[in-house]
Amino acid sequence: MDVVFEQYFDFGIMRDEFGFVLDGFWQTLQLSLIAGALSLMWGLVLALLRQLPGKRFAPVRGLTIAYVDAFRGVPLLLVILIISGSAPFVAEGLGLPRSVGIPQWFGKTDPFWYGTLAITLTYGAYMAEVYRAGIEGVPRGQMEAARALGMSHGRAMRHVIVPQAVRRVIPPLLNDFIALMKDTSLVGVIALLEVVEAGQTVQAETLNSSALTLGALMFLVVTLPLARIVDRYIAREQGRFQRGLAT
């Protein structure tokens, strides 16, 4: 048993490498928050494009559906590799500035931004589907009432439909955010020193996995409360719904 304990919970290694692993986790957190915020926005844009009415916008709807299907259907790792391996050449070929092809904005390295882009493109597609479920779950009469008051489709979406839809989809969006946060570890393969990559570096040096265990604990410090928040939110909404039925 001591072997097991030492392999995963060597407090000496944990203490010595704590700063190193925490630096990695700080990268993970920043990447999660930035890519998460961008995914939330991009997903909403995609969902709204998909809801544009009329024959005129049929091509836009078709392209949006194709995009969402494509990015939900390929591995994030593959998207990360494609972007990081091609962005510098594509940007140069298109005559774009070097800072676009090899972005190092706000003191972050280019793998950080390649990862941000890949995650946003992929999770935007997932979140678009979540928003879509929310928008389509708003009763038809809401759009009709808004239109009957003379609101354009866009105004009705903004003031009537989306506010109701977002409320319904906060729990699944938070679940997607938890998944996104875990998937940021994939950006480790293009040499971003995030928490998993940091843990693995220590593992390779010490032949001991305690630094990775430490990384796991750091994840749990964030993801467990998030999961609880989702549960409480769902319970609260359900309570409200049942009260609504009672009256």
């Binding site: 009469g141 009432a145 808004a146 009957a148 008051l149 109701q164 409320r167």
Partner: peptide
């Protein structure tokens, strides 16, 4: 333009549930 000159009231009311009575009347 047409729709705002023609008021409509529905069988199912279709009030905006995320807005108070006052806000419902004020929004448009």
């Amino acid at each position: 333009y047409v729709r705002r000159r023609v008021g409509m009231v529905f069988q199912q009311f279709n009030l905006f549930p995320h807005k108070s009575a006052l806000e419902n009347v004020r929004l448009a």
